[in-house]
Design a protein around this nucleic acid. Structure first.
Length: 513
RNA sequence: CGGGGAGUGGCGCAGCCUGGUAGCGCAUCUGCUUUGGGAGCAGAGGGUCGCAGGUUCGAAUCCUGUCUCCCCGACCA
């Protein structure tokens, strides 16, 4: 441990925030853009997003949705229709007021006062209102329901404090919007999509999550119920990795989404919306990253296997490349985790040993180095990113025969996928504390439990309104938030830690991103 | 938005207090050597010192404004 020369300089245990940023630049995921809170997502980072998109898009379509695209500009007045919604988003909306620039006479450009928009346009922070307009047109009869739509888009929220991937001014996401004939079906759909997110997070991104309902104070503006999946980062903080909302008839009333039912009566639709964003990538970094950089779960790795020939800039290189190309072709013809293996033969000039560390930092799951000695012996030098270091403090290479390596890669990728999930889940379980039976015990726990205290699960009587507000204030003094009411947790059997009344459910308390 | 810190070749930094025309390490390029584990030596290229004003004979350095980033807070699906 001590004399390992890690690929990063920052350490998770010392300065988690600095480590996080170093991973982003060292793994070549993204960089700053010069515009406040906006980032350039580089090929490796965007490649990961494309993988997430593809896998999640399949899941969304498999549950009956169709993709659409709605405009990025929304008339300001659309937002005025739903009171909670306006209140929630008014503070963070970017507004377009002009459609032309003119010279200011001093070499610069200014918005042309003559080209002022009659009604300002808002850059969408989310699309409930504009999609609601469309739904009102598209839904006429009970036969049009349910209406199941989704869009992949960018949105803008003018946040006070931004962080790469976790909270950026502009971010990429998917937002699903559905309309249903009745409440029961809409509520059921809200949970169905939450389950899609859970499966995507756990099975595709190897992120263990806890699904549950958000408390009243954490609801999406305009929602009747908000549900989330919460993931634990390596510093013990929580990250809301996806949300699903039952919107009741709030948006239907605002946009007149109604239909004629079987009896010929007009009725309001019940709607839902749900989304996950590029924030997921921040979660992947903070759950799977280590002191050598990122570790990308095989299912979402743009390249799962990197072949690095040990080129010597000599005529023998041709034979070595041929040997490597044979391996590449063999691997590319195999499948793992239900898809063809994604394998890159990295022919770029440079020493394999130096390039290896670039791929370690990027987190490619398997790195195969091949030199002339391997070729002569019919072997390769094989390295797993999830088991990088041997006990001697050096990279833990194995030397399988080339055929055996080609044979093993698919199940090794499956094993790495499972191993990343297992490690994350084990860490999370080790860092959820249960059984604290008073607010004082919680306070004591969080003030005396070091830098990364994790989460606690406590019982409460689900207070509402002003009583809840007071509790939220008390929690704030400990920098804690109520994450959600885990759907899977056991029934309550004790007293509420806030009110002393008999508890009705269990909640997770954590510091959060 | 409040408090604190910072912006100097691709990356990391020194220089700033005490103004005199820009330097180090890594990376890059060339050559030679080396060749199975993040190569060595020599040479070279690359910077309007975030941006805009001001003070001054002269500004990376002093003053003002502004933009961006980081940390803490407030805020936040």
């Amino acid at each position: 441990m001590s004399n390992i020369r890690h690929a990063l300089t920052a350490r998770r245990a010392d300065d988690f925030a600095q480590w996080y940023q170093e991973v982003i630049s060292a793994a070549d995921l993204a960089e700053e853009s010069g515009v406040r809170g906006c980032m350039v997502i580089k090929p490796w980072g965007y490649g990961i997003w494309e993988r997430i998109q593809r896998l999640l898009d399949d899941r969304i379509k498999a549950t009956g949705h169709e993709n659409c695209y709605f405009p990025i500009f929304i008339p300001l007045s659309n937002f005025e229709r739903e009171a909670q919604h306006v209140e929630g988003f008014a503070k963070e909306m970017a507004v377009v007021t002009h459609h032309r620039l003119i010279a200011d006479g001093e070499g610069g450009l200014i918005p042309d006062p003559e080209a002022k928009l009659e009604e300002p346009l808002v850059v969408r922070p989310t699309s409930e209102t504009i999609i609601g307009d469309a739904m009102a047109r598209w839904v006429q009869s009970w036969r049009d329901l349910p209406l199941l739509t989704n869009q992949w888009a960018n949105v803008v929220r003018w946040e006070m404090r931004t962080r790469m991937f976790l909270r950026t001014t502009e971010f990429l996401w998917q937002e699903g919007h559905t309309a249903h004939a009745d409440e029961a079906e809409a509520r059921e759909h809200t949970l169905r999509m939450l389950e899609v997110y859970r499966a995507c997070a756990e099975d595709d991104l190897a992120l263990p999550v806890i699904a549950g309902e958000k408390p009243e104070n954490e609801r999406f503006p305009g929602a009747v119920e908000t549900w989330s999946i919460e993931a634990m980062m390596q510093d013990g903080k929580a990250l809301q990795a996806g949300t699903s909302h039952y919107l009741g008839t709030n948006f239907s009333e605002a946009a007149n989404i109604n239909y004629q039912d079987r009896e010929g009566q007009q009725a309001l639709c019940h709607t839902t919306s749900w989304g996950v964003s590029t924030r997921m990538i921040g979660g992947i970094i903070m759950v799977h990253g280590d002191d050598d950089g990122l570790r990308v779960p095989p299912r979402i790795a743009p390249w799962q296997v990197i072949i690095l020939p040990m080129l010597r800039d000599k005529p023998e290189d041709a034979a070595l490349l041929e040997y490597c190309e044979g391996l590449r072709a063999k691997l590319a013809g195999r499948s793992a985790l239900g898809e063809p293996v994604r394998v890159l033969l990295d022919r770029k000039p440079g020493k394999a040993a130096a390039k290896r560390w670039d791929w370690v930092r990027k987190g490619a799951p398997i790195i195969i180095e091949v030199g002339s000695r391997d070729m002569d012996a019919g072997t390769v030098s094989f390295l797993r990113r999830d088991r990088l270091w041997a006990d001697n403090g050096k990279p833990d290479f194995s030397a399988p025969a080339i055929e055996a390596a080609a044979e093993d890669v698919p199940h090794l990728l499956e094993e790495i996928q499972a191993e990343l999930f297992r490690q994350a889940e084990e860490r999370r379980e080790a860092n959820i504390t249960r059984g604290l039976d008073s607010f004082d015990a919680v306070a004591e726990f969080f003030t005396s439990n070091g830098k990364y205290p994790g989460w606690v699960e406590v019982q409460w009587s689900k207070p509402t309104g002003a009583e809840l507000d007071k509790i939220v204030e008390r929690l704030k003094s400990l920098k804690l938030t109520i994450r959600n009411v885990p759907s899977q947790s056991a029934a309550a059997d004790a007293a509420c830690i806030f009110t002393g009344a008999p508890a009705t459910e269990r909640i997770l308390l954590a510091r959060a991103y």
